[in-house]
Design a protein around this nucleic acid. Sequence first.
DNA 1: GTAGAGTTACTCGGATACCCCATGTCCGAGTTATTAGGG
DNA 2: CCCTAATAACTCGGACATGGGGTATCCGAGTAACTCTAC
Lengths: 158, 158
Amino acid sequence: MNEGVEWALHSCVNLCFIPGEAVTAKRLAAFYNLPTAYLNKQLQALTRAGILTSTSGPKGGFQLARRPDKISVLDVVTAIDGPEDAFRCTQILKSGPGADPKADYRKICVISQSMRKAELTYRRELAGKTIADLVRQVETSYPATADDTRNWFANLKS
Amino acid sequence: MNEGVEWALHSCVNLCFIPGEAVTAKRLAAFYNLPTAYLNKQLQALTRAGILTSTSGPKGGFQLARRPDKISVLDVVTAIDGPEDAFRCTQILKSGPGADPKADYRKICVISQSMRKAELTYRRELAGKTIADLVRQVETSYPATADDTRNWFANLKS
DNA sequence: GTAGAGTTACTCGGATACCCCATGTCCGAGTTATTAGGG
DNA sequence: CCCTAATAACTCGGACATGGGGTATCCGAGTAACTCTAC
């Protein structure tokens, strides 16, 4: 899995602490000492997926495109890592003896079915968790984090 | 995910159709027109993991190291693809402001927790399915496959 | 003081290099079947 | 005919190339804030 997924999720959570204001990739990157241009690339992907909105120029930056409880963790993962399953069925049965050339082995191969079923439970788990859930968990377990983060972004001078 | 996982699972199922006999990587590869040496590499990994046993020389080859109902799909996936989770938490929180240098953020970061929880359901699903289950499914849905496969391996002359 | 036009600085966005790992290949160590020869 | 030893062939095992995608970077298009001037 792409490493940018981790960055994207953390950035989305941080954006929740700075509502109604565009935050630049530069500042989001400085928060974790990440390479600015590369994080920008990930944020672009989130923008293309409709999760963030971007504005150019001074006072520009990124912000959430919709309410955090309408953004699932799966949305972010899919935006960064792509929609393909981890297990790619290449239908090797088609190269085997007695194969049906016009059959779709991605659907009828029991191995493909089993792997796909497991991935569906995985995706269902991620789809059931929203950015808002993550924020709530942070606020419950670490009450100071929200204010600390807000202050850090407010006081950042460079 | 490594493509060899697909090959390994299919090969394990095929080995179930040829009990009590060592099958060479060459023949297993010929069944699906796979590159022999590369499939051999995957079978080596299964051997290191204790899933297969290998014998050298003429009449050598691979066979299952234990009963198919004692080999889970997860065992095979782990043997080929490694034990690491797909989502690797790099603990970027450690580089953030107000971080605890001696904390293990892989355990306390809510994002890491969520991703890990989802992967656990994924692994649990794969752990609950055995090679024997796959074989049984094949035999139920495609009754001719078992005999056809046996005959193909028996009649292979090269 | 105010409006407006020009300038400046800043940000995103995509095009461009770099590098590591999955993919693919090859040759040697070891083992067993085979065979030839002698008893 | 039978036993033994040398031979040969076959297989796994790991070491060695190669290519594609993730990683990282840079520069240009566009935009909004700022400033200066004229009224």
